[in-house]
Design a binder for these strands. Structure first.
Lengths: 214, 214
DNA sequence: TGTTCGTTGGACTTCATGGTCCAGTTGTAG
DNA sequence: CTACAACTGGACCATGAAGTCCAACGAACA
């Protein structure tokens, strides 16, 4: 990744200021979207000035937004650590699920830093689109690894396609968030995620509850 | 619903112009989002003038966007007719699924007029948010009716909660579209939707393929 | 035929917002 | 302590987009 900001000569103070800008912008974007976020708002929220914004992000708003996307993406992944790295049993999936839901709840808003940006700005900024796509892809791969471990351990059907299962889970998260937004509740997200996680639930418990035939 | 445009005195010619504006705006929003759509673009695309835009939509851009949301919503529902009204067997769900996927494919872009607007503009315009929420709700209710019919006919488990199943299906659609966007392919959407539709698939076929235990 | 009202054209105004500039301050290394 | 570079403040500029205004056109109807 090529960052327009060379981090060689940078003071600690500068680093803090820069980080403050990124986080405040993220907050604002989360609340009002990219288009609804102005540099003046960021400036006011961070008690900085225009010159600082352009000092740290010479590429202007576009670069700042990209930086925010990467930062938020990292936060999202860290929130899933360490569970997402060690998905190999139903219990580990449950722990991961709890950590993820908790992350979304803690932000106060029902929006995914990756998913909602994907919808908002995909067509406006190809570079941002790339960042989003990369984040989505590694997320899916990490989940697929977990599914693969489950399969190799014989905990789920050998015929299950890990990539497909991972995609279904991701889709459930993104779609669940879309529905949680107007609902102002986590339940659509939880329902969708649990449903997608069904195939990973060992034994025929899931089938019996959700899918049995009279 | 209160429309700022009183339709009492309006010529056929005016109606056509107005409709032309709505459709062109929808096209533009689909391509560039709400923020990326300017009235000048709409004016150019429809060969109209500013005065016409404000003549037919006194509320300005906000009203126009709301009108577009409603129009697109209607289109979306019509695309699912008549199947969505008569969900009562696995075959009918399959027909509905085909019609829906076909609708999204035919638009050329992987975006839902309801879902993507929900993400984009929910917080900027409360009225638009209401329109989106309503559309989402009636959609969910209609699907839930179908699930209810399935349950009452004994085709799925009596314990299944129709509203929850409908929500999971909707989430799969929305999330599938989010993932289909960067992928530039319908497969994530189809995978997610099929997975969510699993519980409606009679017999233990689904269980055997996706979820069996060694 | 003329009057009325829906319709249309396009110039004009206002203003928010991204972006620029430069002078002044603070920190740090020799 | 001095010099240089990083950092900060805020006035200023350019632009594009929403919204206004008014004059002119055209179709229905007396």
């Amino acid at each position: 990744m090529i960052s327009a900001m060379d981090e060689s000569k940078i003071t600690e103070r500068g680093r803090r200021t820069r980080q403050r800008i990124v986080e405040a912008t993220g907050e604002q974007i989360l609340a009002s979207g990219i288009g609804g976020t102005t540099l003046d708002q960021v400036r006011a929220a961070t008690l900085t000035s225009k010159s600082q914004l352009f000092h740290y992000f010479p590429g202007g708003k576009a670069e700042l937004v990209r930086e925010v996307a990467q930062w938020e993406g990292r936060q999202l992944f860290e929130a899933q650590e360490p569970y997402i790295r060690d998905l190999r049993s139903w219990e580990s999936w449950e722990q991961w699920r709890a950590a993820l839901i908790n992350y979304y709840i803690s932000r106060g808003r029902w929006a995914c830093p990756i998913g909602s940006l994907a919808t908002q700005a995909a067509m406006s900024d190809p570079e941002l689109e790339q960042i989003i796509a990369d984040g989505l892809r590694t997320w899916r791969e990490t989940l697929a690894d977990g599914v693969r471990r489950m399969r190799d351990a014989g905990l789920i059907a050998p015929a299950a396609d890990p990539l497909k299962v991972a995609t279904v889970i991701l889709a459930a998260i993104q779609g669940g968030l879309v529905l949680s937004q107007p609902e102002r509740s986590a339940w659509p997200l939880e329902a969708a995620l649990d449903s997608a996680l069904g195939p990973l639930h060992g034994a025929s418990l899931t089938n019996a509850v959700v899918n049995s035939m009279p």
